[in-house]
């Protein structure tokens, strides 16, 4: 067995129940997302029964307002929503980390310009800015992905800059500069290896935020558009059923909450493991 597998197994054995719960949720969701077309009993947009059938009848989670199988759509939703959220987080990370590191190692001047710019972007409530830009550019998935990625990259920028600076002021970095090393070498060899742990934790937290944000936009009808299955828009579409005492809209909403709790639990455990959190 590879040593890395051995050590991860060992780590798993020491994991507290909460972390196990988180890992289980994440595994199930990822599995559902990847294999949705093979597991799902019906097609993503197939109308298969009467509208508004309740939970636990012929259909596991009932049917939605036009008679599509909710269970099927939840599986596809895992693929669409989580996939898009991961993409957005990855983009936000790329932008935020690159600029954050530039800010951390560059001259005071560059840092000031970048930081003030980010300050202003962060002073605007993200939902409002997103609404504004979506009005101009029109509501499409691509626009939403770009808007959230840019908005969220500001938080990644702040964190990367802060942890990057904490490392950049240390003597081993000063020494590398004095040795005559280039900026890229310093970032790659001296700074990045020392900030991977907080960045990894931040990736988890940012994913949660992005995921909730996309769900909220979709719920408002401004994010992922029908008929694509997506957890946020599923809540919106089926919301009228609740007044008939049918709990269907709660299913996708609970899925959203479960995944977010799961990722949060994993991040907590990771922070504890890497000594960044004491309790």
């Amino acid at each position: 067995m590879l040593p890395i597998m051995q050590s991860s197994l060992k780590l798993l054995k020491t994991a507290p129940p909460t972390a196990f719960l988180g890992l289980t949720i994440l595994t199930v969701v990822l599995f559902a997302g990847v294999f949705a077309p093979w597991i799902a009993p019906y097609g993503e947009t197939d109308v298969v029964g009467a509208p508004g059938l309740s939970i636990g009848g012929d259909f596991l989670f009932g049917t939605d307002q036009i008679g599509r199988d909710v269970f099927t759509r939840i599986l596809y939703g895992a693929r669409n929503t989580v996939g898009i959220a991961l993409l957005v987080t990855a983009m936000a990370f790329f932008i935020g980390v690159v600029f954050g590191l530039i800010s951390a190692v560059s001259s005071r001047w560059v840092d000031q310009v970048l930081s003030r710019l980010v300050d202003i972007l962060m002073a605007i409530p993200p939902l409002i800015l997103a609404l504004l830009i979506l009005t101009i550019a029109g509501t499409s998935v691509l626009n939403m992905v770009l808007v959230i990625a840019v908005l969220d990259s500001t938080r990644v920028f702040r964190l990367t800059r802060a942890v990057g600076m904490n490392v950049a002021v240390l003597e081993f970095v000063e020494l590398a500069r004095l040795r005559g090393e280039g900026t890229w070498w310093i970032v790659r060899h001296e700074i990045l290896p020392n900030i991977t742990a907080p960045l990894a934790a931040e990736f988890g937290l940012r994913f949660c935020f992005v995921f909730l944000f996309i769900s909220a936009l979709s719920f408002l009808g401004l994010g992922i558009q029908p008929p694509t299955a997506d957890w946020g828009s599923m809540v919106r579409e089926t919301s009228t059923l609740i007044s008939f005492g049918i709990a269907t809209p709660l299913v996708p909403a609970i899925c959203i909450a479960l995944l977010t709790v799961g990722v949060n639990l994993i991040v907590d455990w990771f922070l504890y493991q890497s000594g960044m959190r004491k309790e």
Partner: peptide
Amino acid sequence: ELRQIQMVYQMPDTALNPKH
């Protein structure tokens, strides 16, 4: 010129990259 002058610092903890 850089090579000719080398430094040793007060805090060996922060003068060595913990990942190296």
